[in-house]
């Protein structure tokens, strides 16, 4: 297993784990009151979005593999 494959696998697994963690946390916290909790929810949502982006990048759907350093 070379470095690229290792990166791929870790990225895909990690992205799925983070996405699930953020989604579950978002669901559990959905009804919490208070300003900072609204901010927390927004941030958890963006965290989930970020993990989706990382997942798609690792799957080669977005971003480009060609000519990488």
């Amino acid at each position: 297993m070379n470095q690229l494959q290792f990166e791929h696998i870790i990225t895909i697994i990690g992205a799925i784990v983070v996405f699930l963690a953020a989604s579950v946390a978002l669901k559990n916290d959905w009804k919490t009151p208070g300003l900072e909790n609204q901010v927390f929810k927004l941030m958890l949502f963006l965290l989930a979005v970020g993990s989706v982006l990382a997942f798609l990048a690792a799957m080669g759907v977005i971003g480009s593999w060609k000519g990488s350093a």
């Binding site: 990690g14 983070v18 946390a25 941030m43 993990s51 990382a54 690792a58 480009s64 000519g67 990488s68």
Partner: peptide
Amino acid sequence: ISRLDVAFAAFNSVVLFGSGATMHFALE
């Protein structure tokens, strides 16, 4: 300048995003 290495950046991003999740668990 060459194109940036997306694969490595995605890997590194997941490391950082993972730290966001662990921080959430820590506070909970």
